[in-house]
Simulated scan of single mutants.
Amino acid sequence: MGMSGAYGQTADDESVHTIHAYLDAGGTLLDTGDFYAAGHNELLVGRALRERSRDDAVLSVKFGEMLTPAGMPSGEDARPAAVRNFLMYSLQRLGTDHVDIYRPARLDPAVPIEETIGAIAELVEQGYVRHIGLSEVGPETIRRAAAVAPISDLQIEYSLLSRDIEDEILPVCRELGIGITAYGVLARGLIGGSGAAGGALPMMPRFQPGNREHNDRLVTSLKEIADAKHATLAQVAIAWVAGQGADIVPLVGSRRPGQIETMIASTTVTLDPEDLARIDELVPKGAARGARYPEGHMPDLDDR
């Protein structure tokens, strides 16, 4: 998403180079959405994969988020007919005959989740999709979806500053054998970022005056852990999420090759029980100030 203007201007050539650097370093998971800049991101990923073996990448694709001609969100469409239509366009833009994980980006309140998952399950049977995923849904929806077909993972925000899933969502996923693909691991740049608030970030509550300063102080307190580990704040944050369980995969957005190096190096950071306890003291659960999304977007989250 970050390669398609969500956090400021980018260059396609550099983005492709970054994807190649990630694959060269042994990374496999590429996450995109058909609505990221109205298909731009899928075209970008497709371009990067033209020079590589399709088997080098695990393609995770979100669908269903509708856009206005101005590029603004305008609701969801997860009807079975729409699911099949969206996938056809994604396959064309990505230049592939299948995606590895296909998931509705948000719950469509007008369509029972059983119908949406049933439609994806048919695509699995036909070979166009390998696995079914979910995104930003709560325990009840997860159970209803899993009763229709096997669910590989739930993509949801999870970081030191966003830990709500620990209460109900994570236990349900573990009960059902569903993994977590954690996005927002660096809190959209609040943790270890450049400090800039480009693209859509200024409208995010945690970047608002008053909230931003409070959240920056929380993050800065982690410097003692990072220094002791000879790591960056970002690497500690990634290691913390990865350390919450083998069923949790941190999804880290990168826009430049140098960021890939930092991300890969986080796998060498080990946090022992004492480190984890100290981190909980420095950044207690629920300590962040401001909601995850602007008030107008919160109704779209089934998991809130």
Score class of each variant (00 low, 15 high):
residue 1 M to I: 00
residue 4 S to V: 05
residue 9 Q to N: 13
residue 16 V to F: 06
residue 22 Y to A: 14
residue 23 L to T: 07
residue 24 D to V: 02
residue 34 D to I: 05
residue 35 F to M: 15
residue 38 A to T: 12
residue 39 G to A: 02
residue 39 G to W: 05
residue 40 H to G: 03
residue 43 L to S: 15
residue 44 L to M: 10
residue 54 R to V: 07
residue 55 D to T: 15
residue 57 A to I: 04
residue 59 L to F: 08
residue 60 S to Q: 10
residue 70 A to M: 09
residue 76 E to K: 12
residue 87 L to I: 10
residue 93 R to Q: 12
residue 93 R to K: 15
residue 95 G to L: 00
residue 96 T to W: 02
residue 97 D to L: 04
residue 117 I to S: 03
residue 124 V to W: 08
residue 139 P to F: 11
residue 140 E to A: 14
residue 143 R to Y: 02
residue 145 A to D: 03
residue 150 P to A: 13
residue 151 I to A: 04
residue 153 D to T: 15
residue 170 L to H: 02
residue 173 C to P: 01
residue 173 C to I: 00
residue 177 G to D: 12
residue 181 T to P: 00
residue 181 T to V: 12
residue 182 A to G: 09
residue 185 V to W: 02
residue 188 R to A: 12
residue 190 L to Q: 13
residue 191 I to A: 10
residue 192 G to M: 11
residue 196 A to H: 15
residue 209 P to G: 06
residue 209 P to F: 09
residue 216 D to E: 13
residue 217 R to L: 12
residue 219 V to R: 11
residue 226 A to P: 10
residue 228 A to F: 09
residue 233 L to H: 07
residue 238 I to S: 00
residue 245 G to E: 03
residue 249 V to L: 15
residue 253 G to M: 00
residue 268 T to R: 14
residue 269 V to T: 04
residue 273 P to E: 06
residue 278 R to K: 14
residue 279 I to C: 04
residue 279 I to P: 05
residue 284 P to C: 06
residue 285 K to P: 04
residue 286 G to D: 11
residue 293 Y to A: 12
residue 294 P to M: 11
residue 297 H to G: 08
residue 297 H to T: 13
residue 301 L to P: 06
